[in-house]
Nucleic acid binder design. Structure first.
Lengths: 160, 160
DNA sequence: AAAATATGTCAACAAAGCTGACATATTCGA
DNA sequence: TCGAATATGTCAGCTTTGTTGACATATTTT
């Protein structure tokens, strides 16, 4: 039942010209970033859906493997989510043996996070298709040019 | 009440070495893409939260402004979400006067999507901080180098 | 005339974010 | 040493945005 509130033809307040590179706005790159990230996450998402995990688990597994021994506070700051939101996925990962929590040595309030062998394997499995995509996208670029890509991406991140 | 299942010290299945550029995996860029996209979306998110809209509305408003007259099917294919998921946000945008639907001329089943003035203004407001971030990240690169960034991002996208 | 297509809609559910409130263990500072 | 601050966990409830499945309508195609 196609909506009855569709107009027969454009009215006075219907804009028909595409929003292009006017106003100094870089629409092309804005859009390309959306597409790149959309497809970049699609590979691991497909793998994760088989094991009942989601993108949130992926992020935790990634960073715990990248920086073993990071505290819960570190992880919260990295992901920029609330502890209640993290708690859900972290608990599942600990309970199913992907992540271990180790009491801090200097500060025993801390729960330092480490991957298990199983967690390391999962992180690698998820990274593989993403890395393949990146390698393919970087093929045809020289080493210096590849460094530029990294430099650009780092410059897109907020300081701190 | 810090979890009682934390270990006092790492056990045999606790991995302590950081996952680095072994296995040919490009962890640095994987991570940088996460950070870049995390902060890239944070600017419009902050603006949207004031008006009761979310990131899903942003995407619709962006593409309808970029390609006025696109069909619902076009939009679904671009966003890679289901029509039921799109319906919710699209209805809100139509009802609150950001998007108009116009019956297709050649095919009257279609509902072609156009921004209103209000919709165009919102799209610009949301794009502005993102473009500012991109411009800043690209400063220091020459015109040829900037083209490389775009080339890389396009190469990250699945064909079709 | 039947089949395919474009769109809309209902209902139920899931993932992953949020706020607010409160508990415990530990460390730090006056 | 004692009270405040910190690190973490947890309960409850809510929101956004995705999903599936089923079905309806209008229009176009075969």
């Amino acid at each position: 039942m196609p909506s009855e509130r569709a107009q027969k033809s454009p009215d006075a307040d219907t804009i028909t010209d595409p929003m292009a590179e006017i106003d100094d706005i870089d629409f092309d790159i804005i859009e390309q970033l959306f597409f790149a990230y959309r497809d970049f996450t699609s590979d691991p998402d497909a793998i994760l859906s088989k094991s009942g995990f989601g993108r949130a688990h992926h992020r935790v597994v990634h960073f715990v493997n990248r920086r073993p021994g990071m505290t819960v506070a570190d992880l919260l700051d990295t992901l920029k989510i609330t502890k209640q939101s993290l708690a859900r996925v972290l608990k599942q990962l600990v309970d199913s043996g992907f992540v271990n929590q180790v009491e801090g040595v200097r500060d025993r309030r801390q729960r330092r996070l480490y991957p298990t062998r199983k967690g390391r394997d999962l992180a690698l499995e998820l990274a593989r298709p993403q890395s393949r995509r990146i390698t393919k996208a970087l093929s045809g670029f020289g080493p210096e040019e590849q460094k530029l890509i990294g430099k650009f991406l780092r410059a897109m991140v907020d300081p701190q």
